[in-house]
Amino acid sequence: MRRPSRFSRRARRRLGTLLRRLVLGLFALWCLFPVYWLATMSLKTPVEAASRNPSFLFRPILDNYRAVLDRPEIWGYFVNSSIVALGSTALVLLIGVPCAYALGRYRFRGAADFGFWILTTRMTPPVAVLIPFYVLYVRTGLVDTRAGLILAHVALNLSIAVWLMKGFFEDLPPELEEAALVDGATRWQAFRDIALPVAVPGIAAVAILCFLFSWNEFLFSLVLAGSTVRTVPLGLYSFIGYQQIDWGSLSASAVLLLAPVLVILVLFGRHLVRGLTLGAVK
């Protein structure tokens, strides 16, 4: 066996780092490219946007944004989406955290089957339940209301939230809670005062995920929301329907409607990554 000299080993390591960054950089570029392209389209004139030779260099114009902001309904979409996403996220946590704790921390008969049943609620093809959902909503007056959408999004996101948080609680060492129980704390106190504070980063990550999933949800909102509680994705979809050719103003609406997601990512992305990394998913 020939040992590589010190120099060549260092050169090789440097080459490895370079290659690694190249691969990661290419992938990052690929992840960002569609968003970049959408942004450039929104800053082009209709002629440039429909050019057979799409240009990377052009004079940006803001006309498309002016045209979009002239529509008053766009603010309504924001309000609806914000209320629905915040409301459903809060409710998912309120209901999901205790359930995840019991599943992750307590051994009881049928626990595995119960956990699997929660997972099956995510497996059901939407087409199967959309029509019963719709009829149910019409009968109970929930159709085309924010409360109705909140409830639907809770049902959609509860399973993934419970499964992720179950993993966090399983990963926490149980000794602290055991000690508290021996010291006479109730089980509820052990949960609230000891397990819960430690799990906060993980719960925050799940909250961000649920918010994004709810903000982006399309199919259930399409069927269960009427004209009064249109959310952001529905608004965007309705724009696509109206104007097949005007790529520019369509792109501008898409950028505006994406803006909150980007803000959330930049502000809270760190917590999302850290939370998922901390307990990860087991």
């Binding site: 992840c31 960002l32 569609p34 389209m41 994004l212 409607l257 994406l258 997601v261 990512l265 992305g269």
Partner: peptide
């Protein structure tokens, strides 16, 4: 952290907007 932010983008973005962009592309 910066890498992860870039990698997080596709799954966070509203699918309707992303799919519309791909349709253009």
């Amino acid at each position: 952290w910066a890498w992860r932010l870039a990698f997080l983008l596709p799954m966070a973005i509203t699918p309707v907007a992303a799919i519309f962009t791909f349709r253009m592309m």
